[in-house]
């Protein structure tokens, strides 16, 4: 079963004209959001995107934009309380982490 999260929320943007079809996005995406067809990348199912940012960071043509971050309520709460961006494990080396 492929789990689906909320519809129409992700910030993923793709610029077909910049795409060189190298396939890195297809390789790194953990939810197979991208697929190469006829030498160019295409978004298959946008709502499967979890905004991890792997595609954008590994796109040498800068054809992908996404506001990357962690989909973690705990991190968002800590971020809101400390006035920082939500990240895994809060501040560096913090003992309060939801990920080991």
């Amino acid at each position: 079963m492929k789990e689906k999260y909320l519809k129409n929320v992700v910030t993923l943007e793709f610029y077909l004209d910049k795409c060189t079809g190298c396939g890195m996005c297809e390789t790194v995406c953990p939810h197979s959001v991208f697929k190469i067809e006829k030498g160019k990348a295409h978004i298959t199912e946008r709502d499967l995107c979890m905004e991890c940012g792997a595609c954008a960071g590994n796109c040498p043509a800068k054809a992908i934009k996404v506001r990357a971050g962690v989909g973690c309520a705990g991190a968002i709460i800590v971020g809101a309380l400390t006035g920082s961006e939500p990240t895994c494990g809060g501040s560096d080396d913090s003992k309060k982490s939801c990920c080991g």
Partner: peptide, 20 residues
């Protein structure tokens, strides 16, 4: 369960913000 979003493998920051 809202906090379990962090342990899950498919939730996005935008989505979690929206539900929160």
């Amino acid at each position: 369960l809202m906090n379990f979003t962090g342990a899950s493998t498919y939730t996005s920051l935008s989505g979690v913000r929206k539900e929160m």
